[in-house]
């Protein structure tokens, strides 16, 4: 696993030797900052109205700001993930630098995990940078810290699912655009897969509901850590990486 880390660190640094890493982080921070600002102003306005008409306390900080803020972040990450993962294998294949990796004494598992970790490190950087906003909330108010923690964990796991799919699609093609487009389409599809759960009948409906990426996030946003959700996310990530492993293995046989 030491070599996975070597690869992860090298690829993570590669994001910052081109404008790519800076653009992704800056763009993400700009959008998240705008979203936080807007949910904050909306929240204050709403609370003011509640007070004015004597309708009680209104929404809590967790319900009113943290939940929508992280929910939005999950959508924004769906757009950003393809840009993060698309080059990981596609570029190596195009420039043939993958020959170095495949003739080095590393296993394919170490290689796949290393590539995945490099993308996860970048998403981790982006997501953790947004922690500045909840920290402001904690400093001036009293949002539920436990819920904050589980929400962030859920967001990282959800983003890891996009990344895992992205690593897989990147390994299947030399074309980065194709890899990115497939990643986005797949992420979106698994997001919306439960739309049909109402009309699909009892058994299939449950299956579709279970397969939905966002459905498993709901518990995290409530502050609940359940094994079902953890197992679902970890299986999804594992499956994507396993498929990548198979693709790379078949690449050598061609």
């Amino acid at each position: 696993m030491k070599k996975s880390l070597t690869i992860a660190v090298k690829d993570y640094r590669t994001y910052f030797t081109s404008p790519m890493g800076y653009i992704l982080i800056a763009g993400f921070m700009l959008i998240m900052g705008w979203m936080f600002f807007n949910s904050l102003t909306y929240f204050t306005l709403q609370n003011l109205q509640y007070k004015q008409f004597g309708m009680g306390k209104g929404a809590s900080l967790t319900e009113g700001i943290v939940k929508p803020f992280l929910g939005n972040m999950n959508v924004v990450l769906l757009f950003f993930a393809p840009f993060i993962t698309m080059r990981l294998f596609a570029e190596e294949r195009k420039l043939q630098s993958i020959q170095l990796l495949l003739t080095s004494p590393i296993t394919l598992t170490e290689l796949v995990v290393g590539k995945f970790l490099s993308a996860l490190f970048l998403v981790g950087t982006m997501v953790l940078l947004t922690a500045i906003y909840p920290i402001i909330l904690v400093a001036y108010g009293n949002p539920d810290v436990g819920t904050l923690f589980t929400s962030y964990l859920g967001t990282l796991l959800l983003a890891s699912c996009y990344l895992s799919a992205g690593v897989f699609f990147s390994s299947t093609t030399e074309n980065q655009i194709v890899a990115g487009a497939l990643t986005f389409a797949t992420g979106l599809f698994f997001w919306l897969i439960n739309w049909a759960s109402q009309s699909a009948g009892p058994v299939l409906g449950d299956v579709l509901e279970y397969l939905s990426l966002i459905q498993h996030y709901n518990n995290f946003s409530q502050g609940l850590l359940t094994t079902t959700d953890l197992i679902f996310y970890i299986s999804f990530i594992g499956l994507g990486l396993f498929f990548t492993h198979r693709v790379l293995d078949s690449y050598r046989w061609r």
Partner: peptide, 26 residues
Amino acid sequence: YLPETPPLYFEMIVEDFLKFAAKLHD
């Protein structure tokens, strides 16, 4: 192994690239 197309990461610095290759080879 030096393949027909040298396996280089164009955005890396020579020294860092060699360190990376050395680490991969234990």
